[in-house]
């Protein structure tokens, strides 16, 4: 049976993430144009759009990763829990703890499975051995990896499969107890079975996290997200319930893109 995504009324009225009139420039090139969006807590939002449309740039605004790129200029507001994370007085490192990030290619550290998950806790100064052990177990369970690796926690993380590595990266992100997970094409390098596991995992995780996912796989966006945002040339063209976007989008540009008649 197809499980319907949440209806408008059921979506959490509390906005976890928000941007207001956000513009971003890489030097002279404008990558985001006046993007305003509100994302509810405990939902999955998918960003879709052609390559270079600004969806990954926009995703990275929510943990201020773009700050690291030279020549970036940002104006407008980006809010997490109603606090503008680009205001001067904000402690970026503290805010980044709220936001976990998972990338396209699994990027485990060349350490053991256990140490990968414990890494964030250790650099945050956590000393309690039992707390670290409990948290590693919790995070691996949340990432649906515990049963597969519980007997080989000290094996190298590089030796496990790509799908397992990606779930390990999710566990690593979860271990520091963020409330938001940003995922930039988390399943695009994985086989269909691993992709299914990641999708199932995302579905489960949204009970505890607000998830934003960038994907080129439209069916994936349709399957796992509550709301979908379509971007084109730095603009947010349409943002609506996923069910609406994939059955009857309001904008012809969205229709053309999702039906493959783009360009």
């Amino acid at each position: 049976m197809v499980q319907k995504n949440k209806s408008v009324k059921e979506l959490n009225p509390e906005y976890k993430l928000e941007s207001r009139n956000l513009n971003l420039f890489y030097g002279q090139k404008q990558a985001l144009r006046d993007v305003s969006i509100k994302m509810s807590a405990n939902t999955v939002t998918a960003f879709i759009g052609p390559s270079g449309c600004g969806k990954s740039t926009f995703l990275r605004c929510f943990n201020r990763m773009n700050d690291l790129i030279e020549g970036v200029k940002i104006d407008g507001d980006v809010l997490i829990d109603n606090v503008d994370i680009y205001k001067n007085e904000i402690d970026v490192y503290e805010y980044r703890k709220k936001v976990g990030m998972v990338f396209q290619k699994p990027n485990p550290f060349p350490k053991s499975i256990f140490e990968n998950v414990a890494f964030g806790l250790r650099i945050n100064g956590e000393k309690s051995k039992s707390y670290i052990e409990d948290t590693v177990e919790y995070a691996l369970k949340q990432a649906a990896l515990w049963e597969e690796v519980k007997d080989s926690l000290h094996k190298s993380a590089i030796a496990i499969s790509g799908g397992q590595q990606q779930r390990l990266c999710i566990a690593r992100a979860i271990a520091v107890k963020p409330s938001i997970l940003l995922m930039d094409e988390p399943a695009s390098a994985l086989d269909p079975l691993s992709t299914t596991k990641i999708e199932e995992l995302i579905h489960t995780l949204k009970d505890n996290y607000t998830i934003v996912i960038v994907t080129h796989n439209m069916q994936q966006a349709a399957r796992i997200s509550d709301k979908t945002a379509y971007f084109y040339m730095g603009e947010l063209i349409e943002y609506d319930l996923t069910e609406k976007i994939f059955t009857n989008p309001s904008r012809i540009e969205t229709e053309n893109y999702i039906t493959g008649r783009f360009g």
């Binding site: 059955t247 229709e255 999702i258 039906t259």
Partner: peptide, 9 residues
Amino acid sequence: YSPVASDLR
């Protein structure tokens, strides 16, 4: 083809 939107309809 996994049709969507107007194609699906």
